[in-house]
Each structure stands twice: as C-alpha cells, then as structure tokens.
C-alpha cells in the first residue's frame, strides 16, 4: 500500500514537472473578475489611443449572440477576443466568419485576428490591462499580439 502511494506521488510530480510553463500567468490572472469586465472593454493610454480597439469592441458587442468582447490594437494590428452566449455556441464557426468579415470591412488597413477562446479572452484582457498601466511601446504590443495569435492557431 505504502509503496504504491509513493509511486503514484512520484509519477504525479514528474507529470506536473513536465507541463509547460508552470505558474507564469498565475499571478497576473488571480483575483480578477474573469468574465465581466468593469470597464468598457478597451484600453486608453496617452500615446497609444486604443480607439480602433474601442470601436471594434463596440461593434462586436452590438451583435445579439455576443456576451462579452475585449480588444487591443496597434497601428497595423487588431486582436479581438469574444465570448459567445451559451445557446449560440452551436453556431460558433459561422459567427467567427461573420465577425472576421465585419471587422475586416471596418478596418481594412488593420491585420485582424479574432478568437472565441476563453484563454485568449483572459490573455487579451490581461494585455489590455498592461497597456493601460505600463504604456507599452507599439513594438512590444505588436510582439504580444503576434504571440497570442500563434497561441490561437495551435490545434493539438
């Protein structure tokens, strides 16, 4: 009995140790209200007006099937994450297509990335908070957006 327990505990530790990047985002995510945002879902800073992101969020939130949305933008890039209402989740693919089209039409000179993933939603919200607080440079935001875009494209 004892031997078995010890064996299991060791395996558990090995598994946990092998997992990716343990506890990096832990801090930044804790204690925040994950879904309902207190602000209007966009970031404002002195040098980087997030007006494009603000507009995009407004447009997307106006849709019936969207529960919440959050966005960040630079001069060339726009990243928008949204949450679909539970009963509309069956049509998620179609909704994604519609939103992509809508945003590309609205912001033709921006590289638009959208995602319905909850993880992307958390991450985008986190990035938005950082922009608001730290006044990140355009280049840094671009880097972050690229990173999140790669994350959203992972499949397996």
């Amino acid at each position: 009995m004892m031997k078995q327990l010890i064996g299991i505990i060791i395996i558990g530790f090995v598994l946990l140790g092998c997992a990716r990047e343990p506890g990096v985002q832990k801090q930044s995510l804790q204690g925040e209200n994950m879904i309902s945002l207190s602000t209007d879902g966009t970031a404002r800073s002195h040098e980087e007006s997030q007006s494009v992101a603000e507009q995009a969020v407004k447009q997307v939130k106006a849709r019936n099937e969207i529960r919440d949305a959050v966005a960040v933008s630079t001069n060339r890039k726009l990243l928008l994450a949204y949450q679909v209402k539970q009963m509309d989740r069956f049509r998620m693919k179609q909704i994604a297509k519609d939103i992509q089209q809508q945003l590309e039409l609205l912001f033709p000179d921006h590289d638009v990335t959208i995602s319905s993933d909850l993880k992307l939603f958390w991450k985008t919200d986190e990035l938005r908070g950082k922009i608001e607080k730290d006044h990140m440079s355009e280049r840094k935001i671009n880097q972050q957006i690229n990173q999140l875009k790669r994350l959203s494209e992972e499949r397996t």
Binding site: Q86, F90, M92, K93
Partner: peptide, 8 residues
C-alpha cells in the same frame, strides 16, 4: 455535426 457539440 460533432464539432458544434464540442463548442457547446
């Protein structure tokens, strides 16, 4: 038909 079910 299965993918929408997973989404849901």
């Amino acid at each position: 038909l299965y993918e929408p079910l997973i989404d849901f």
